[in-house]
Design a protein around this nucleic acid. Structure first.
Lengths: 228, 228
DNA sequence: CGGGGCATTGAGACCCGTCAACGGGCGTGG
DNA sequence: CCACGCCCGTTGACGGGTCTCAATGCCCCG
């Protein structure tokens, strides 16, 4: 599958703008003394593979995709980051993946150097750094199981249940911020297969699709059964 | 693919035995004051999914597989841990995957409670914990790209190059500690496909197979090209 | 020599990818 | 206001890469 030609930028509504923030506005890693907040328009890059990793990031509003590309344009989305999620974690001084805003997003940034300096004096902070890395690792490992061993139906079921849990188990239908292409690249499938699985699930009354970006989970138990 | 019936235990040569060790014998996370060393026979469990995560582990000699199972027996190996690798990292107090010795192995253990207590006073140690989690995360993300977007040939090429780099770039041929089933479960394939890809690569003079567990990389450049 | 575990090989089936056409929503501009 | 174009998603036909099933071979060890 080659679709580098599809890496369209849509229509970025605004350029990233910087806005200082008094912080302590809920950075998940810990309450931190200083942070910047930036707005990223839909489909704009937050950082690229091999960029210097100067910041840690937290989603305040919106959604972000982290991904890798192969030289021929194949893309694997490693994770979607939603409100409250930390991303940009890396061991070295460079990022090992790229990140883009899926929709217009507001992102909190904290300098890694600041965080690390603080962590050297604050065991609580150091611990929460380690915890958030370990959490991302667990998520990645669940994702490995999905990509390595689940079929298309199971992948979609897992994805929908996960999104439902993260987007707020309360509100139904789920409002998906990402396109079919994003979903496909997250699940290791093609847009066509994603589309077919969704219509299958709608036909078997597991879900309803009020619109292409809205999914109502009609029979979550059945979805769980599909998901193994 | 169902092969829970294949989860044979082989013939464990010895039961795990405990042997105290003065430690500081190269625990990658850092020089640590106390550690235990245990021997695990081939195919014996080191910890299981949902076990309480009491220890951090480092491979001294041998090889370990970390994996998850689906209810119907499908298995995904998340990583192979070789000499020097840290595993058993988790955010919560329980493991989220299982670990077994691939071959008879000698494993260093350190109590998590000890490590965390020390980390609270030793920023260097705290940092190395975070680093090792982040490194594992990067490895997992590379693995995601492989499982989500690479074909069987590319997966095998990536696997062989990775093993060559890790097992010691010097010695050729590589001595693989794991079976075809292990490789298949690591790469999200079947043993038959793994076998076919290897014979293909042998037929095209990219590799040689002196025995099923030994692989000589005859044309690493060609392998790199296959790996994208 | 016989047996078991592991790996290889072949034939056929199937899931999903590829290619192509169509449709629907929405903004733009005539 | 409506036509048009663009983006995105859906649907269908078809082919191919990988899985499944089965038989055979190899090697070690009893």
């Amino acid at each position: 599958m080659r679709y580098s030609h599809m890496r369209d930028e849509g229509r970025p509504e605004t350029m990233p703008t910087l806005e200082r923030v008094s912080s302590r506005s809920g950075f998940d890693v810990s309450r931190l003394p200083v942070a910047a907040c930036m707005r990223f328009a839909r489909n704009t890059e937050i950082f690229g593979e091999d960029d210097r990793a100067e910041y840690l990031y937290t989603v305040r509003t919106g959604a972000v995709r982290g991904y890798k590309l192969l030289s021929d344009g194949r893309r694997q989305i490693e994770a979607f980051y939603l409100s409250g999620d930390v991303f940009g974690i890396t061991a070295g001084d460079r990022h090992h993946c790229s990140a883009e805003a899926v929709v217009n997003s507001s992102i909190l940034l904290v300098k890694r150097s600041t965080v690390e300096a603080l962590a050297a004096r604050d065991p609580q902070l150091a611990r929460s750094l380690w915890i958030s890395a370990a959490e991302r690792l667990e998520q990645a490992q669940e994702h490995l199981l999905l990509l390595g061993r689940k079929n298309a139906h199971e992948r979609l079921a897992a994805f929908l249940l996960d999104m439902a849990a993260r987007c707020g188990a309360t509100r139904n239908p789920i409002e998906l911020p990402m396109s079919r292409q994003d979903i496909a690249d997250y699940l290791g499938l093609t847009i066509e297969t994603v589309s077919r699985m969704l219509t299958d699930m709608a036909n078997t009354a597991m879900i309803e699709l009020p619109s292409s970006r809205r999914v109502l989970l009609r029979d979550a138990a059945a979805l769980s059964r599909v998901n193994c």
